[in-house]
Design a protein around this nucleic acid. Structure first.
Lengths: 220, 220
DNA sequence: AGAGGCATGTCAGAATTTTATCAGCTTCGC
DNA sequence: GCGAAGCTGATAAAATTCTGACATGCCTCT
């Protein structure tokens, strides 16, 4: 994990750098506000440790510009300006944590771990087969770039089959996962549903295994 | 946004509860460790404010059990045990922030805002979607430059949906985070509320996913 | 205390979308 | 070719959601 240290006191910068390297991080260090702004804007860091009293450009200004530009890396402010008013100001400028100097290195490392832990878990859950994408957060399906409007039952059906891709799903099992438990089984509602989904996502995605069920194959 | 307060001192709990409600949160409060564990394990909270010195079950133990069970809501520890060793211990037990008593309410609110915006996967202190801006610090919403007057419930609804943007929010979840715990479920108050918010912020911001819920999409 | 204003729940009917059902058709396996 | 399994379009029925109107209750101001 790559960490940017923005700190103008060379002794503190060296101390931080050494401790972070000792914890397994890759560290870059700058002492100047302008340079910090440029690096944070153009490079990719797992987190930033930011001192506020900087030559050139103030730390808070740097942070606000990063956020205005859509940079979302976690930022831990570390400064001697210790009053609660400054802390509120720093956090509301877009910082994730604020640690006053002097500080215990152990605590800084713990807080950094917490920031990294929290910022890590946002992978987009998207399943894609043959150009058809299923976005589970948006509950939306796209095919060849265009969004496809699916009704609730249609979505449940496609979602289940895509989760079970490369496996033949018996009709009875599919029905159990699409319909509420008390549902007529001796009609062809499921087949009608499959038919409608096929018309929307393209006919060859959902294949019929006559006598067994349906399957979505990953490799066409 | 629904917040759980775990605090055994009734005066501090009342103080917290009042301040959080004033900032537009839906608040639940418990004083007992066992009960806190149960609620945090089974209910859905946007964040938890956790005191460590509790009757019944220790706060740290409660937190560790939540994390062991896969609960990922942000937790802010708030306690009089102020040494840095305790802070490191609390953070490494899975807390996201640690604020020693006594504390400034302003700072707690700021840190809570930081936790909530980060847990939604974002960093900037102001959320903006399609020309509509939500400033949590000022509790103010603007659209196309003009401020929009929202009632408390309307604000909670819009705020929650904007925090959860690009994710479909089921009606039941939305209701939990907008209304206090004891509330009728089989009326259409929520739909009426959505309708009112739509009239104020423009009809196409909040989209309906029939059968699933509502969503605010960042990229329309 | 009373008036007025505001926030919000409630209701009914409208608007819209979704789904079951049916009938006839097609395809598949033997 | 035959029977069974599966497909599809049409349509009616059902479910969901929206919205305006109204009622209620709370708060503030006089």
């Amino acid at each position: 994990m790559r960490i940017l240290i923005v700190e103008d006191d060379p002794r503190i910068a060296a101390y931080l750098s050494q401790a972070l390297k000792g914890s397994g991080y890759v560290v870059e260090s700058v002492a100047d506000g302008e340079e910090a702004w440029f690096l944070g804007d153009s490079e990719d860091y797992g987190a930033v440790i930011l001192d506020l009293g900087l030559p050139g450009l103030d730390g808070l200004t740097v942070l606000k510009r990063w956020r205005a530009n859509g940079r979302t890396m976690p930022v831990l402010i570390l400064t001697a300006r210790g009053g609660w008013v400054e802390r509120v100001e720093g956090i509301d400028a877009g910082a994730d944590d604020y640690l006053p100097k002097p500080f215990q290195m152990e605590e800084l490392l713990a807080r950094l771990r917490a920031l990294l832990r929290r910022s890590g878990g946002h992978a987009a859950p998207v399943i894609e087969v043959d150009g058809v994408c299923l976005d589970e957060r948006l509950m939306r399906v796209t095919a060849q770039g265009g969004p496809i409007a699916l009704t609730p039952l249609e979505y449940r059906l496609l979602s289940y089959l895509m989760h079970q891709r490369d496996r033949v799903v018996p009709q009875s099992e599919l029905a159990e996962h699409v319909y509420d438990h008390d549902h007529d089984r001796d009609n062809n509602a499921l087949e009608a549903l499959v038919s409608r989904v096929r018309r929307k996502v393209g006919g060859r995605l959902i294949q019929t295994r006559r006598g067994f069920g349906y399957v979505i194959e990953q490799v066409p």
